[in-house]
């Protein structure tokens, strides 16, 4: 498991290093917890980003349900703010991939590189549902 996690960390580092403008990358569970991230992102910032990205994706999903054509979920969420950009895409089951970029970044390129990564290794970027516990019988 640690080997897999180390490999994922390396792939995220590689994504950031090889994509102009990309600064941090993080994989998070749909319920808002970090799974792995690039080393320049501090643990505190990674925790914050995981919660924020889960919230953004959940709201985007609702926008898709209410106003989309019903054929699918969310392809990508993108937020532009002063000093940067935030991209989020669905990764494997139960997980999202988030990338923070500076405002010189090429929006199309970042999106493309994120899709590429998910296509390659989305099967490993997962956070499966909790096993359902047997309900306790009243004592």
């Amino acid at each position: 498991m640690s080997t897999t996690s180390a490999n994922l960390d390396w792939l995220l580092e590689n994504l950031v290093d090889s994509t102009a403008g990309a600064v941090h990358a993080l994989v998070l569970s749909r319920d808002g917890l970090k799974l792995c991230h690039t080393s320049q992102l501090s643990v505190d910032k990674a925790d914050q980003l995981a919660a924020i990205a889960a919230g953004v994706q959940a709201l985007s999903q609702s926008a898709s349900v209410e106003f989309g054509d019903g054929t699918g979920g969310v392809r990508q969420s993108m937020t532009e703010f002063y000093g940067g950009l935030l991209f989020i895409v669905e990764a494997g089951v139960g997980a999202h991939l988030a990338v923070l970029a500076d405002d010189t970044a090429d929006v199309g390129l970042i999106g493309h590189r994120m899709d590429e990564l998910v296509e390659q290794i989305g099967a490993f970027l997962t956070s499966p549902p909790r096993p359902s516990l047997p309900s306790h019988s009243p004592e």
Binding site: S29, R30, K34, A58, Q61, S62, V65, S127, P128
Partner: peptide, 30 residues
């Protein structure tokens, strides 16, 4: 109603304590 519930994943075991509500499977994230 706006629905921002997500499936509780294995990443939140030990973080989101569902003692007393063990059959809870979804949680609001926005």
């Amino acid at each position: 109603p706006l629905n921002t519930e997500e499936t509780m994943t294995q990443a939140s075991v030990g973080v989101d304590q569902n003692a007393g509500v063990a059959n809870k499977a979804m949680t609001t994230v926005a």
